[in-house]
Amino acid sequence: MASMLELKNVHAGYGEFRVLHGVNMRVDKGEIVALVGPNGAGKTTTLRTILNMTTRYEGEIKFQGRDITRIPTHKIVEEGITMVPEGRGIFNPLTVYENLLAGAYTKRAQEKIEDSLEFVFSLFPRLKERKNQIAGTLSGGEAQMLAIARALMARPTLLMFDEPSLGLAPKIVLEVFDVVVKLRDSGVTVLIVEQHVKNSLEVADRAYVMEMGQIVLEGEGKALLKDERLKKAYLII
């Protein structure tokens, strides 16, 4: 079976500053794939490169069999990939509801907007209560829920998370992982970058470990959890 997303020998960075040195990865339909690694390894850069938000020097990225390396970001979103960005990227002056509407900006999402709203409000009832609140006044946890809900409004085939649990209380971190699993079970394919290596390897079907812009280890999530090198590097107990 062909992969949903495939990166072949991708070299990318920011202008002259090279970050990724030949990344090879794939994400299959229905999987949760985790991408872990130390700070500055290039995880965010990988996700941004998939969305054509960096400088790419070499390599190819295919989504559902189609080469997307030269397609502008907003059109890739229309194709069905979206991302919950690092730091959430909420539209602060807009209301919660307007943030959700913005999430459904693409043609593919517009037709299903009522359905999508119902779905995200059932997933995050708190957002429904706060529908007309200015998004900038939400708590950190609520803002993260909004960021996830907004991404879901785009009706993605592939949803990428960049450190969704950053800065959240442990209880809410678990909630976020619950949501990730729920989404996978509802048919969304997930690529997740996380600092919480243990949690993410537990829920991931497969995982990649990135160091200094290269994939250094890959395997099934649960198998990697037992990997000695990884245990040492990330102090997984």
Partner: peptide
Amino acid sequence: ANREVAPLMG
């Protein structure tokens, strides 16, 4: 509000 994130909405 956020020109970096707007493209992610399409």
